[in-house]
Write a protein that binds this DNA or RNA. Structure first.
Length: 350
DNA sequence: AACTCCTTCAACCGCAGCTGA
DNA sequence: ATCAGCTGCGGTTGAAGGAGT
């Protein structure tokens, strides 16, 4: 016996919404709100729609202050930076962009930003490697297992490590991090949906424990890439970018590989939230201004627009209402926007 | 003009998590 | 502790329109 359907599929209208339906829903929502029950709402207002469909229509289209299209460069930077940091958690990303919906951002990323980024990245790799790069199609074909495959032969040169793109320091980022206790960080990360190990640095082959079968060549390349990360991390332990690589490359023993990440200039696979909490703590306490997009570690209470300790048990980062009512801090100048993204957005201007 | 291919984006679907009984 | 109902999320689909031939 399967799960009971949320509505009577046979008597439910699908497809595009008519202006009349929009008007009904909008008018009801403005007067009454959901009444705490989306499922019952369509019946109340005489719509032959699934409750989920009503919710989606309201959140993505009818809700006040929704912006469509026309993403600014600032928004591009924020989206890219957050995607790099946290992956495809569109609701969290949307919460950083007032008036934007997760659906919009997701569409924008999938149809435009990703292509631009990959295209740009490939170009640069080709330029650097004389055309020996992983193609976009290959990356896509790997179904989220996108790893820039470095040649493993003896002539292999130092890999290309551009700076991790950095957001302009946020207004509150010069504050001392509030999450300086191990458990708070860990609980918040769990709240955000990750799984985290208490184990500290434990070098583990990047492909260990994965439910993914790599070809020998790919596995070799991943191992090789991991070695590069480890070497880089050892050499650059003092930078957040090294810590990022270190995290991603090493602490994947519990990983559920869900996201294709672009980090540190290399497309790589990031375990879903399997950061070492100690490393996170180290990053937070030592290099707060370099935690791209991870400003939630800084303890900003968005709901009250103040810096302070968020109760990790009550913080709700997916709350789109907050994003509308309390605009998040946004970079206000471009002097620190990474050259990479400037070039990516305005090719050939530098 | 007609056709095909590509891009965009609104909407759908299924799953996971939360909550209350 | 378990279960059912509901919500929220992210991946995917498909219609519509634009671009190219």
């Amino acid at each position: 016996m399967g799960r009971a359907p949320c509505c009577d599929k046979a008597n439910v209208k699908k497809g595009p919404w008519s202006p009349e339906e929009d008007a009904k829903l909008k008018s009801y929502m403005e007067q009454h709100g959901t009444g705490g029950n989306w499922i019952a709402l369509p019946q109340k207002i005489g719509l032959k729609r699934c409750g989920k469909s009503c919710r989606l229509r309201w959140l993505n289209y009818l809700r006040p202050n929704i912006k469509h299209g026309g993403f600014s460069e600032e928004e591009d930077n924020i989206i890219c930076s957050l995607y790099i940091s946290i992956g495809s958690r569109w609701s969290v990303i949307a919460a950083q962009l007032p008036g934007r919906t997760d659906n919009d951002i997701k569409n924008y990323w999938n149809t435009r930003l990703k292509k631009k980024l990959l295209g740009k990245h490939r170009k640069e790799q080709q330029a650097r490697r004389g055309g020996n790069s992983t193609s976009v199609k290959q990356l896509e074909a790997n179904k989220g297992i996108a790893v820039s495959i470095a040649p493993v032969d003896s002539s292999y040169q130092q890999p290309y490590w551009p700076e991790i793109p950095l957001l302009t320091p946020l207004p509150y980022s010069n504050q001392a991090p509030c999450f300086n206790d191990h458990d708070s960080i860990r609980r918040l990360l769990i709240k955000l949906g990750g799984r985290f190990s208490d184990d500290d640095y434990q070098p583990t082959p990047i492909h260990d424990g994965l439910n993914i079968q790599f070809s020998d060549a790919t596995a070799t390349a991943i191992t090789s890439t991991q070695q590069i990360y480890e070497d880089q991390a050892k050499n650059m332990r003092s930078s957040a970018s090294a810590a990022c690589m270190n995290n991603v490359a090493i602490n994947n023993n519990q990983a559920q590989f869900a996201h294709t990440q672009y980090c540190g200039g290399v497309d790589l696979v990031q375990g879903q939230g399997s950061f070492s909490s100690t490393l996170v703590e180290e990053m937070v306490s030592s290099y707060p201004q370099r935690l791209d997009g991870l400003e939630f570690f800084y303890g900003v209470d968005m709901a009250n627009d103040k810096v302070g300790l968020i109760d990790p048990n009550s913080a709700s980062w997916g709350d789109t209402n907050n994003s509308l009512v309390y605009p998040p801090p946004v970079a206000s100048n471009y002097q620190d926007i990474p050259q990479y993204f400037q070039e990516f957005r305005y090719p050939g201007t530098q």
